[in-house]
Structures are given as structure tokens and as C-alpha cells.
Design a protein around this nucleic acid. Sequence first.
DNA 1: TATTGTTATACTCTATAACTATA
DNA 2: TATAGTTATAGAGTATAACAATA
Lengths: 157, 157
Amino acid sequence: MPTPAPHAKEPHDALGYLVKHAHLRLTALTDAALAPLDIDSKDFGVLRVLVGRAPMSQQAVAAKLGVDRTTMVALIDGFEAKGIVTRKPDPADRRRNAIELTGPGLALYRKADAAYLAAEDEFLAPLDATTAALFRRALRAVLAPPDGSDRRDRGAD
Amino acid sequence: MPTPAPHAKEPHDALGYLVKHAHLRLTALTDAALAPLDIDSKDFGVLRVLVGRAPMSQQAVAAKLGVDRTTMVALIDGFEAKGIVTRKPDPADRRRNAIELTGPGLALYRKADAAYLAAEDEFLAPLDATTAALFRRALRAVLAPPDGSDRRDRGAD
DNA sequence: TATTGTTATACTCTATAACTATA
DNA sequence: TATAGTTATAGAGTATAACAATA
């Protein structure tokens, strides 16, 4: 038989579909959880970089998140307007802006962190604790830089 | 309780970061694997819906993939121009286009499927077989319809 | 009146290029 | 010259709205 019968595969079994929709669902959950605080998942990613660290330049934050420095401008604009961060010229190098969480910004982060963790828990609810931990470990393993391979991180949060 | 010291969390520990970058990496791998066939991951998703099934309307394909019907138009345009699918009015309902894989389209799908599976394997390479299977099951579980009022375990797939 | 495919349009997101001020 | 931040612009991707053909 030259042409074996084509078998109908369920598209939803493709790993790409599963991972993509896992991402969509998790983002929807975290966005919804953070919405009452008037921030979204991407904003929270920035807060997470800033918290508990010395003031950073916008470019350093951008690099940590894998986004372009031009993309950071609007994000920091919004944070500054809300009083979440301060943006002052770095005395050591006045080309740089030193970005630092304010008191209210830190308070906001704490609420956001709780909301974010609750959303994570909701996302992982179908898994028992052991499986959830293994799931997390598997994700880390899969993202560990494959030696000798060229890898490019893109995008925030 | 004057505000406990803010702890610096590694942003890359957030589940959202892990899932997002897993998606980015897997997409990069599958896109690269499919590029020699002149298709990408999204095209492959469409092929996967069409293969081994009776001809479908554009809208049905779009719904299966969770995209808008207007988005399907250009995708099918490209496939038709390449001779991968035929697009003829459905005799039963002439508003519909019956989309069907051609012979060359099926041959292309077979090559694409092999390439896609190889990319999946590369993605999962850091995991042993048992963990990889568990990872897949966990993804399915996490995507199981959240509206299911009845929380009962349904034995995986 | 509702639905399928189509087109035109708008919107979101993000990157590239160019400008400024510093170094 | 080179770098950080800013601005304006462009591109990719996808959705919304309107229209023709069909039901």
C-alpha cells in the first residue's frame, strides 16, 4: 500500500497547542486577578524585577525582561504617573534614570503578589501538589539553556 | 509591624514567565523545523485540523483553532495558492467553502508532522520519558474545561 | 433574518531609526 | 564615539464592522 490511510489527529494533542493555551489561560487568570489593582501581568513582571533590588536603569529592567528599551519607556511612564516608582537621573551617570519603587509602589506589589499567587494556584488547581511541583520543575528544565545552542529571549512578563 | 523587608524574587520563577518562555522556545523550535517546508507552526496547526477529516468549512477550521474566521481567509488563500488545499463551494450549503487537503498537501503534511515531532522531542529532551509524559498530562489537566461544575477526576484522556 | 466568506479598517503590541543629552 | 532615554514610525498579528451571496 503506497499511501497509508491518513489518520485524524486531535489538534489539541499537539504540544504546541497545549503550551500555547496554557499560556493564554494563565495570562487570563493573572490579568483578571490583577485588574482590581489596575495593573496587568506585564506590569507585575516589572514590579517583580524592581522589588527588593537597588534602583536600576530602565535599560537594565528591560534587559531582565527581554524587551526593548523603547518599550520600557511607556511602562515606566505609567508607573511614575501612578506614583508607583520614582524616576530620577542616576548621579553616577546622568544619562541613566534610576528607577525605584516608592512606598505605595511596594504596598501595591505586595497586594499584587498575593493576587498573582492566588491566580497561579487556581491555574494549578487540577493538579495535586506533587504533580504541580513536578510541572514547575519540568518547565524550568525545558528552559535551561541547551549548551551550545543559540537562544534568544523575547518578550516581557 | 513596620513593613517586613522586601524580598527580591527571581522574576524567572514566576509561573507566567516559565510558561510564556516555554511557549516562545517551543514555537521557535517548531518554526525552525518547518521552515524548510515553507510553512510555520500556525500553518501546521491548520493542516493538522484538515488531515484525515471530511472537508470542512473555513469557519469550522477557524473555530477548531480558536481564531477568527476573517483570519482564516488569508491562511487558506496561501494554502490554495501553493496547491495544498482545494476550496470549492459546498454543494449542500453554497455559502460554505469546502476545504480539503490535496495529494501534495497530504504529502507535505506527512513531512511536516515528522519535522514537528522531532522539534517536540528536542524541546522535551531535558526530561526523561516518564516526566515528559507527566508534563503532557499536566498540561491537558490544566486546560480541562474549567466550567465543569462537577469536579470529578476523569482519568486523564 | 441569520450565516459564510470577504474586504476594509482599526487596534495592540513591539521593534527600528533618529534625535538629545550625557559620557 | 558610544550609550540611555525619548519620540516617531512601521510592521506583524488579529479583531471588528460592513457587504454580498446564500440559506
